Simulated assay, not measured.
Amino acid sequence: MDVLINVFVGLHIIGIAALLGGFFTQMKAMGEGTAAFGKGMLHGALTMLVTGVALVGLNQADDQSVNNVKIGIKLALLVVILGLVYVKRDEEKVSPPLFGAVGLLTVANIFIAVLWT
Score class of each variant (00 low, 15 high):
residue 1 M to Y: 14
residue 1 M to K: 11
residue 2 D to C: 12
residue 2 D to E: 11
residue 4 L to F: 11
residue 5 I to S: 02
residue 5 I to P: 03
residue 6 N to K: 06
residue 6 N to S: 13
residue 9 V to G: 00
residue 10 G to E: 11
residue 11 L to A: 15
residue 15 G to D: 13
residue 16 I to E: 11
residue 19 L to R: 06
residue 21 G to E: 13
residue 21 G to F: 14
residue 22 G to L: 01
residue 24 F to Y: 04
residue 25 T to K: 13
residue 27 M to D: 08
residue 29 A to I: 04
residue 29 A to G: 07
residue 30 M to F: 02
residue 31 G to F: 15
residue 32 E to K: 12
residue 33 G to Q: 00
residue 39 K to N: 10
residue 42 L to A: 07
residue 44 G to H: 08
residue 46 L to I: 11
residue 47 T to D: 12
residue 50 V to C: 14
residue 50 V to L: 13
residue 50 V to Q: 02
residue 55 L to R: 01
residue 57 G to W: 05
residue 59 N to Q: 14
residue 62 D to R: 10
residue 64 Q to Y: 13
residue 66 V to D: 10
residue 68 N to I: 15
residue 70 K to T: 08
residue 71 I to S: 08
residue 74 K to H: 02
residue 77 L to M: 01
residue 81 I to P: 04
residue 84 L to P: 00
residue 85 V to Q: 00
residue 86 Y to H: 10
residue 87 V to T: 15
residue 87 V to W: 14
residue 89 R to H: 15
residue 90 D to L: 09
residue 91 E to K: 11
residue 94 V to C: 04
residue 95 S to R: 09
residue 95 S to C: 08
residue 96 P to L: 05
residue 99 F to A: 11
residue 100 G to W: 02
residue 103 G to H: 00
residue 106 T to E: 14
residue 110 I to C: 03
residue 112 I to W: 07
residue 112 I to T: 03
residue 113 A to N: 06
residue 116 W to E: 12
residue 117 T to A: 15
